[in-house]
Design a protein around this nucleic acid. Structure first.
Lengths: 207, 207
DNA sequence: TTCCGACCGTGACATTTGTCAGGAGGCCGG
DNA sequence: CCGGCCTCCTGACAAATGTCACGGTCGGAA
């Protein structure tokens, strides 16, 4: 038998992280060599433990999983990346692939398939949920411009236009215009609705 | 050695469910006898498999974990309930305890402690995250009245006052009054802000 | 019983929000 | 070089929102 595949796990929920470690450790050809709970700990830890495959959650403090994937591919080009996420948002998949991820798995998938996904990714194959891939193709990329995204992201907190304008150093009228454009593009009827739609599509990712 | 503790797992994410099963199965005195992915499958499955302890996630389709806990305690009074949740929201803990849960664990807790929590709950003890308990006491119960909660819950979707009034069979003025009261009580500045605050505190639970 | 609070409604009001038209600068590809 | 797109601003307008004062019903507590 050859060397086992070395894994790094990154998930902010310690319980889930430990449980995944237990699950994957059941496989004889897999071994978990590192666990981290923050996105910004992925690269330093990977440099120490030299994993073959990194399983990254998208929702993490410090650095989101997609950004961590990009940083990891830059630091360790030989390390494969499998993104594991709670939400099957089309934008997440797109961004993850653009960041150089080799696979994308939703946490809804049966537990037995995870080990296979890891093996496929390690073998150089791409692993993508076909349903989510179709949805991503159908939804298309974000129609929002950079500023519109930023304004919408700031509007998540739920402040008035005046506050948004202050934090963004913009005129109130400009903020309203960007919001109006975002509302139109998302097909929403409200500012709140637009935030919801954009968030569900994964268009508000990178902090 | 005595009989192992029989466990039922309820979590909508198959991967997490399976991983928890793997984690808990490592313990010789624990055995997973059932897994379900929906809240409304908890009681039927429990009636078949007769678990000693049920681990319930709060966020589940069909029936949320708190409601499932109440139903389970009514159907099988001998079965202990341990609520396991992603979000440490004060209202969740309160509601879970009122529903008759024996323990409340956040998914941030280290994986090693979960088995102990299960054993403690099985032994008749209460298991509660002390930090969260303090926060719950500090936050106090929901200041919102029933109608205000309902209006706020409906407002999550992000519709206009007219739409809210239509779906709730209320006058627009009444809806505005309830919203205004909710905004005042939550200390928010917006309807959207009020929704956010109430949601973060777990005041919008039961469907 | 009386009183208080939650609940429902009305109407009116100031503020905020969303939309539109228009103008100006910058950047990039044809 | 020009056209197109993004960005930023102004100003104005209709619509939606948030607030307030007021009356009324109903159930439970004092």
């Amino acid at each position: 038998m050859t060397e086992p595949i070395r894994l790094l796990l990154a998930d902010d929920q310690a319980l889930v992280r430990g449980a995944l470690a237990a699950l994957l450790s059941l496989e004889p050809d897999l071994t978990v060599v590192a666990e981290v709970g923050r996105g910004d700990e992925v690269v330093p830890e990977a440099l120490r433990s030299r994993p073959d495959v990194a399983l990254l959650d998208v929702e993490m403090p410090g650095l989101d999983g997609v950004a961590a994937a990009a940083a990891l591919r830059a630091a360790l080009p030989g390390c494969r990346v499998l993104v594991v996420t709670t939400f099957g948002r089309p934008g997440y998949l797109r961004r993850a692939m653009e960041a150089g991820a080799n696979g994308f798995v939703v946490k809804d998938t049966p537990a037995r398939q995870l080990a296979d996904a890891v093996r496929r990714v390690h073998a150089g194959l791409r692993v993508v949920d076909p349903t989510l891939a179709a949805e991503t193709l159908a939804t298309g990329p974000s129609p929002l411009t950079d500023r519109e995204t930023e304004v919408l992201r700031t509007a998540r907190g739920g402040g008035t236009v005046a506050e948004l304008a202050a934090t963004l150093h913009l005129s109130e009228g400009t903020v309203r215009n960007h919001l109006s454009a975002a509302i139109g593009k998302t097909g929403a009827r409200n500012r709140a609705d637009a935030v919801r739609v954009a968030e569900e599509n994964g268009w508000l990712l990178g902090d």
